[in-house]
């Protein structure tokens, strides 16, 4: 009798202790999501993923080669007309477009993708939920859904490799509950070594090299001084979006303000500049709303057009206090 009671007490004590120590299901989900945002995979990875092409009926194959220390090379394998290579060698970010014979280079600024800024936003804007596990490529996956607290914003479902934390698939669950597969890994390996030459892109003769630097600004007044015009910078945005970074384009041919907004998981980039008379920028669907000192505003995003328009609308509201503005949209 005593033995039974004692063993029950010990078992209960153990359960309480385990409950106290073991993370809850949602904490486990958060841990996998945050680990992925930080790119903390602790292994070399060579993966091929099939990614949908926005606004086109088709997909592309992208090969990702990532070293344990975070160097990354991405190559579009197909279709041929989209071929290009991206490299993050830890110091610089490079993009090589063979068809254009163009190499774009910019310094690697880790702050630009600072996941530490994004974590509190994710916690504020999303409920992170653990779903029943599944297998991708025969590997056990931890399935995590980031459910937006705003009904109009799509939810995102990730399948993380249980062992390494690498996301093997991402699905978009729209507000009408339809699901789009954003990408899925079709092949993955974890090689012990990666050839260092992978993480080099050397321009061949005849390739134009364009170097970009970045000038960060922290205050609207600072931005106005650098730009030579007063930009529109709303203080509040819908759906939990916040300004992550504010930069000035360094190419002095056209002074542009670049606002990087995020809700933690999704991004919108807003550009503002003063167009020249007769300037005909054909970057997508142009829609003239109002004129405000000739200021032009463009939003670029991989998200629902309704959300993008709502964010743009905050600039219009901001402009209405001062005068008319010219608004442009890019449909992605």
């Amino acid at each position: 009798m005593f033995t039974t009671r004692a063993s029950k007490a010990v078992s209960f004590g153990l359960l309480v202790a385990i409950a106290a120590i073991a993370p809850s299901q949602d904490e486990k989900a958060q841990r996998y999501l945050f680990r992925s945002l930080a790119g903390d995979y602790r292994t070399n990875i060579v993966a091929v993923l099939k990614q949908r092409i926005a606004n086109e009926n088709g997909s592309k194959l992208v090969k990702i080669q990532r070293s344990m220390d975070g160097k990354t090379k991405e190559s579009v394998l197909s279709p041929l007309h989209l071929q290009g290579e991206f490299l993050d060698d830890g110091k610089e970010l490079k993009f090589y477009s063979p068809d254009d014979r163009l190499l774009i280079v910019q310094p690697n600024n880790p702050a630009a993708q600072d996941y530490k800024f994004r974590l509190p936003l994710i916690q504020k804007n999303y409920n992170i939920r653990l779903e029943p596990g599944r297998k991708v490529l025969g590997r056990n996956c931890v399935v995590v859904t980031a459910e937006s607290k705003y009904p109009k914003v799509s939810d995102i479902r990730y399948s993380f490799d249980e062992k390494t934390g690498f996301p093997l698939s991402k699905e978009i669950i729209h507000s009408d509950k339809t699901v789009d597969l954003d990408y899925e890994v079709s092949d993955i390996k974890f090689p012990g070594k990666l050839d260092p030459s992978i993480f080099r892109i050397e321009p061949v003769v005849g390739v134009e090299v364009v170097n970009y630097a970045e000038q960060c600004v922290n205050r609207p007044s600072e931005a106005a001084q650098a730009l030579g015009f007063v930009p529109l910078i709303p203080t509040r945005f819908p759906y939990g979006f916040q300004i992550q970074r504010m930069t000035i384009s360094d190419k002095n041919k056209v002074k542009m303000l670049c606002l990087k907004l995020t809700d933690g998981l999704q991004r919108i980039t807003i550009y503002e500049w003063v167009p020249a008379p007769g300037e005909t920028i054909t970057t997508g669907e142009d829609r003239e709303i109002k004129l405000h000192n000739g200021l032009k505003i463009v939003a670029v995003a991989d998200i629902d057009s309704g959300i993008r328009d709502s964010v743009l609308h905050t600039f219009i509201v901001r402009a209405e206090g001062d005068g008319p503005a010219l608004i442009t949209r890019i449909g992605i």
């Binding site: 992208v62 071929q83 290009g84 163009l102 954003d182």
Partner: peptide
């Protein structure tokens, strides 16, 4: 790369 943002081609 796993954000789902499309690695667009420059052209």
């Amino acid at each position: 790369p796993t954000s789902g943002a499309s690695l667009v081609h420059y052209t």
